[in-house]
Design a protein around this nucleic acid. Structure first.
Lengths: 107, 107
DNA sequence: TTCTATTATCGTAATATTTCTATATACAAA
DNA sequence: TTTGTATATAGAAATATTACGATAATAGAA
């Protein structure tokens, strides 16, 4: 097993689950917080800031990019990552909608 | 490996990650939505509603209970589950706080 | 061109997650 | 007490995730 049966759930349920999964790791939370704290984009000082190996950080960044939560712009040999604000807000709205709808008809 | 290095992150980052992890599965999303739709508490019609085996549902319910998102009250040989509304709201607030703080100082 | 710094990818080991079957437990009814 | 229903737990198989070292790819500097 180990395989989530996505086919038995609807698009909204699967989409929410994917978003929550991307956010379900403290390293990725820390990366998002660090990227946002540098008010301009930053590069792989992330590796120094967070205590994880460079390939590990790179992989986390890839997962954050997979749902478009951050964007990476190549600047010479460096890459500057920043929060994708429109998507960030859209996801916040989606999650609030889930929380509100679920809460509204509750015992 | 396969082991998240929680010790290098702070309490807030780990707490957020745990919450997101519990929500990161479409079955658990579906269970929450179904529980809330039955405006009184319901029992294991969940097994019939969602297309998963009874022990699988039971384990998902356990994970949802682990962060106090739902509560189960024993009624005879049945158990009635319902959303724990105060905790639900608290978590929604915590997530909004994370989204807002992270967004506020962004590029 | 060659060197060096930055980032991405590959491969792999350890652990975690999802799901199921089988079984145990709890309780109500017969 | 015995039977049946509802739920939980144990154990196992398949797959996913986390993390790292090694290596590749890229681009500016020497």
């Amino acid at each position: 097993m180990g395989l989530t049966k996505t086919q038995i759930f609807n698009v909204e349920q699967n989409e929410l689950a994917v978003i929550f999964k991307v956010l379900s790791n403290p390293a990725r939370i820390a990366i998002l917080q660090y990227i946002s704290r540098q008010d301009a984009c930053i590069c792989n000082d992330i590796v120094d800031e967070i205590g994880l190996a460079q390939p590990t950080i790179s992989q986390h960044l890839k997962e954050l990019k997979s749902i478009d939560l951050i964007r990476g712009e190549i600047e010479g040999k460096k890459v500057c990552y920043c929060i994708n604000l429109p998507k960030w807000t859209a996801i916040q709205d989606l999650l609030n909608s889930f929380f509100n709808t679920t809460k509204s008809n509750c015992c």
